[in-house]
């Protein structure tokens, strides 16, 4: 006999939390489809199926109950985040390989749900970026800009067979991302004001992409309102990114893009609300969350500006994941009744 109190509970299950995260991604996905076509839906589906199969097989191999872990939807969340991070007009196996790596290696080989030190989606992304750099930069142009518009069936066909309709060249349907374009143009001694006259630039970030980012922001605010995430991580990330890009921009606006551009380009908003908010691989203390998110922001910015990749979110997150135990240990809050 032992004391088992409390006898009551009021907590959403892990599954319910993950479902809300998925729900919060829906506005972003809708904006994505609207801006770039339905191909992303195929990628999402491929990722989901791969993730669930991989999860089930790994649970079976590891002799864990399958049903409760499949319905925690954590694998689906990982799959969606990875799918949204890679170019949607990629061959089908790219997302499958990335998802497999994320679920099998980054998640289950480290002990499964709750034990992975690194964000599985970002590990999957990093593996793809390093292994298939060319494919990872083939982003579709926003539909409103593309000289030739690919329909959903065309995109589907391209994903599975790599074949485009006759007379359509791949370059006609893809374009560099604004971050990528900015980077290459800057090396050609163009200034930011000139570069951002290019049609791929929108009001804040890239054309099309900025709307998707705005939709992610909406979803993120929903997560905050639902108390799935706290304000710490997104605020610290966005603030730190704004500050560091602001400092460079104020110092030399000809060579450094504005904070608004950095906030609404690339994976900034997705990262702020959906990627660094992965609880398992992130810090737990309020102060730790601030340091972690600020660290991700600074490293992301440095990679964008000085690194070899147009965006740096994945590497920044992975690097800061390593620091989590250290951050947590040094940011323990003051316990009631203790001076420190």
């Amino acid at each position: 006999m032992m004391n088992r109190s409390p006898y009551i509970s009021d907590a959403p299950s892990v599954g319910a939390i993950m479902l809300k995260v998925l729900l919060a991604l829906v506005p972003g996905i809708i904006a994505y489809v609207w801006m770039f076509g339905g191909g992303i839906l195929v990628t999402l589906l491929l990722a989901t199926v791969t993730a669930l199969l991989a999860e089930a097989v790994m649970l079976k191999i590891r002799n864990r109950p399958i049903q409760p872990f499949l319905t925690d939807y954590s694998a689906v969340t990982t799959a969606w985040l990875l799918a949204l991070a890679i170019p949607p007009l990629s061959p089908w196996w790219l997302i499958v390989v990335g998802t497999l790596f994320a679920i099998v290696i980054a998640k289950h080989l480290y002990g499964g749900l709750g034990y992975n030190p690194f964000n599985p989606a970002m590990i999957g992304y990093a593996v793809l970026l390093i292994s298939f750099p060319a494919l990872m930069t083939k982003w579709p142009a926003a539909l409103q800009l593309a000289q030739t518009k690919l329909g959903f069936i065309d995109q589907l066909q391209f994903i599975f067979s790599g074949a485009l309709p006759p007379q359509i060249m791949l370059d006609a349907v893809t374009s560099a991302t604004p971050l990528d374009y900015l980077k290459t143009q800057l090396t050609l001694n163009h200034d930011v004001a000139g570069i951002s006259q290019a049609p791929i630039f929108g009001t804040l970030g890239g054309k099309g992409g900025e709307y998707v980012a705005g939709a992610y922001l909406l979803g993120g605010l929903y997560l905050w309102q639902q108390k799935i995430i706290t304000w710490h991580l997104p605020t610290a990330f966005l603030a730190a990114l704004a500050v560091i890009s602001g400092v460079f921009w104020l110092a030399d606006s000809a060579h450094y893009a504005s904070p608004a551009f950095h906030l609404f380009s690339g994976a900034s908003i997705l990262c702020a609300f959906f990627i660094i908010t992965d609880p398992v691989s992130g810090p737990t203390t309020p102060k730790g969350k601030l340091w972690f998110a600020a660290g991700v922001a600074v490293i992301t910015y440095l990679i964008r500006v000085y690194g070899g990749y147009p965006d740096g979110v994945a590497f920044a997150v992975i690097f800061m994941n390593i620091c989590v135990p250290l951050i947590d240990a040094h940011t323990q809050p003051r316990v009631f009744g203790h001076s420190k």
Partner: peptide, 29 residues
């Protein structure tokens, strides 16, 4: 009245416990 709790899942370090702790401990740690 007091439903038996569902089987425990692994800790996902969400820190809801830390947010709820009146002593400001880190229950997950």
């Amino acid at each position: 009245l007091f439903a038996p709790p569902p089987p425990a899942m692994p800790c996902i370090r969400c820190a809801r416990c830390a947010d709820a702790c009146p002593v400001n401990l880190q229950p997950q740690e």
